[in-house]
Design a protein around this nucleic acid. Sequence first.
DNA 1: TGGCCCATGTAATCTGTTACATGATTGT
DNA 2: ACAATCATGTAACAGATTACATGGGCCA
Lengths: 194, 194
Amino acid sequence: MNVRDLCLGALTFGDASGYGLKKFFETTFNQFCSAGFGSIYPALAELAGEGLVSCTDEAQSGRPDRKLYHLTAAGHTAFVNNLMQASPTHRVKSDFLLVMYFGHLLPAGRLEAFLDGHIAELDRQIEFLESYCGSEKTSTASSQVVRGFGLTVMTAARDYLRRHRNEIISSAASPQTTTSYCRKTAPQAGAQSS
Amino acid sequence: MNVRDLCLGALTFGDASGYGLKKFFETTFNQFCSAGFGSIYPALAELAGEGLVSCTDEAQSGRPDRKLYHLTAAGHTAFVNNLMQASPTHRVKSDFLLVMYFGHLLPAGRLEAFLDGHIAELDRQIEFLESYCGSEKTSTASSQVVRGFGLTVMTAARDYLRRHRNEIISSAASPQTTTSYCRKTAPQAGAQSS
DNA sequence: TGGCCCATGTAATCTGTTACATGATTGT
DNA sequence: ACAATCATGTAACAGATTACATGGGCCA
């Protein structure tokens, strides 16, 4: 399931431009995937070349022209095919959890900032999911289930972090540890990774 | 936070080989990241070249020789530096949720299989997190918090899917819909994406 | 004898991100 | 005036996955 399939899927809900698809991904699919212009536009051009979508130039008043993409019958069957054969992976890539895992190496202030930042981010996402109710077309039973899933999981995550906030912060490196390490080892200048 | 930093972080718990690091990632870091040999070995070579890790050839009895990597003082400070400056992202990439979102396009049997497969996967991961208690070195307060986080979130996810199982399956495409679509549109053979 | 675990590495490929390039309109 | 939104695209780059290549020991 790459950007191509994401585009096909979004187009099952109606015609859209590349720009519109990105907005759609940022709202509706935000929970489980993302895509930038740099992958959307080439993907649409590819799909059009294969006849899975068709494209119409549309002049707009007061706005730049746009290319409206439409899912063809072939595109619809290809999408359903890909859905059926997909291996339904679910992976989390979290630098936040990595940072938490190494909390004992960080000063308490920094750890606290990371933690509160992530709690705030979860609050934002939860609020968004609660307020956002797609369009008529995207408001299917399936989409409501996925929305509920996100709400449940994110709320559980946020509540866990709130409950363990003090515990987490008190597990940070003590100020002495951080300072003395730097003094003792006299680290070489310019030693940097990534 | 790339594979380089993952290696540095893992090596704060003690020396290891490239092979050993992969095992470590698969167990301890499994929740929030992953890495294959194809990225670990080149990363270690790079880090050794920069003096962030040192490397010793070690002959083993009854096993192939291995290269034991050791975090240097420079490597330690570089890692802590990177941790501090990291933007603590947390993103989910889930083809499972994508498939669920388009459940209304799939036959009930297929949707059910996807759903049950994912519930079973969550069961496996929860069971693993419950049973697994790292080594002495990795059993820090921080690591326990991350473990608890994973347990909480995955349990919430599994329970939600169990509670809504019937609802989800009944939102699948009705057999008629699937069949009639194929009949009406006479899709071109060979129309495939990805 | 066949498959799995240990162990290391390279090369090709895929996929996506970031930065660049352009430009009109609308709201503050 | 200035920023934001709408709108499309290319090119360079980064990062990781996959397949390939090799080889001994252990267990059934």
